[in-house]
Amino acid sequence: MAQFASAGAAPLCQICSQPITRRIRKSRDSGRCCSRACGFEMMRRERSASRAARLARLAEVRKAKRQRQCIECGGVFEARASAKFCSYHCSASSKAVRKAECTCQECGSTFLPAYGDKRRNFCSEFCANRHFKRVAKGLSRAKAYGAQAEPINPIAVMERDGWTCHICGEEAPRELRGTMHWNAPELDHIIPLSAGGSHTYDNVACAHRSCNLEKGDALPLGWTDPQRLWVHRGSGGLA
């Protein structure tokens, strides 16, 4: 809209604010600019404002099209069409959840391996160290007796035996593994190392802690030495 200096006066130029004296009937700047130069400047400013408004609208449209919802945390973020996660953390968490749960060979608990961690046998460094120390201890003890020895995984033996005591035939609860409970599952040498038995998978079995202590270094049924023969009676002792 043209500006007026005062009532009844000539309108002022929208660019330089000078009175408009030129009269051009067919022109976009007629009655708005005092000269052709001001008219060109006005059109340049209008085109610039129109372009800025158009770019702003286009940016809003693009922003709306680029908005995605993270499938892990549900947050809204801007990214390309193929993006599914708002951050590396959400991507790693989703991949970890999609992985199959693993069972710790030491404590028996289930866990989800951390992203990028290739270890699937132990839930922590503590369980890993504890397991390997136990395996090494079994090997060193067998070698002290001069017996044949191989690395034995106690959990694998107990899984093989179905977490059942081979002495009394009752269940040895997995959750008691590693405790001092009388019913806790332990690794027992069927033929004791002191009697020439080997530290191999064929000579070990799952047993209750109490049954293992009760058996001691006695021999199983069918052994040729009757003095060391042991029969489980539920309260301990030799036959």
Rank of each mutant, 00 (worst) to 15 (best):
R44Y: 07
F40L: 15
W223V: 00
C90A: 14
L219K: 00
M158I: 06
R174I: 12
A10E: 10
D161L: 00
L219Y: 04
F40M: 05
Q3F: 10
A56E: 15
A149Y: 04
E175D: 12
F4Y: 14
A2T: 01
A96G: 01
S210C: 07
Y145D: 02
E170H: 08
A156H: 09
G162N: 10
I20N: 06
A59N: 15
R22N: 02
L58E: 12
G116S: 13
C104D: 14
N121P: 00
L193R: 00
A144I: 05
M158K: 04
G75P: 09
P192V: 01
E78G: 06
A147H: 04
R134G: 03
S35P: 03
G236L: 08
M1N: 03
R22P: 01
N183Y: 05
L12T: 11
E171Y: 03
A142H: 01
R22E: 06
N153T: 08
K84V: 15
L238Q: 08
E159W: 04
F126W: 10
S17W: 14
T224Y: 02
C206L: 09
N121L: 15
I190H: 05
G138W: 02
I71D: 10
T179Q: 00
I190F: 13
C70P: 13
L187H: 02
T110C: 12
E159L: 09
C34V: 01
A92T: 08
W182A: 13
A239S: 06
P19N: 09
R25E: 07
E175W: 00
L221A: 15
R36P: 06
W230F: 06
P19S: 08
S82L: 11
H232Q: 08
S140W: 05
M43F: 13
H199A: 03
V157M: 01
C127L: 10
E175F: 11
A9R: 12
A5D: 12
E78R: 12
S109L: 13
G31F: 01
P113W: 15
N183D: 15
N121R: 15
R32F: 08
S27P: 02
G178N: 06
I190A: 07
D225V: 00
E106T: 07
G8K: 07
C123V: 08
G169A: 08
R177H: 06
K63P: 00
A64N: 11
A7C: 07
G162T: 07
K215C: 04
Q3D: 07
A37W: 08
K95G: 15
F85S: 14
R66N: 13
G197L: 07
L139E: 02
I167H: 11
R28N: 11
A195F: 04
L221N: 14
C211A: 12
F40C: 09
F40T: 14
C165S: 13
L238H: 08
A10R: 03
T164K: 10
C33M: 06
N183A: 10
E46N: 13
L221C: 09
R228P: 02
A59V: 12
H208Y: 00
G75H: 15
S87Y: 10
I167Q: 03
R28S: 10
C206N: 02
E214L: 06
P113G: 09
E159H: 02
C102W: 10
M1I: 02
S48M: 13
G39K: 05
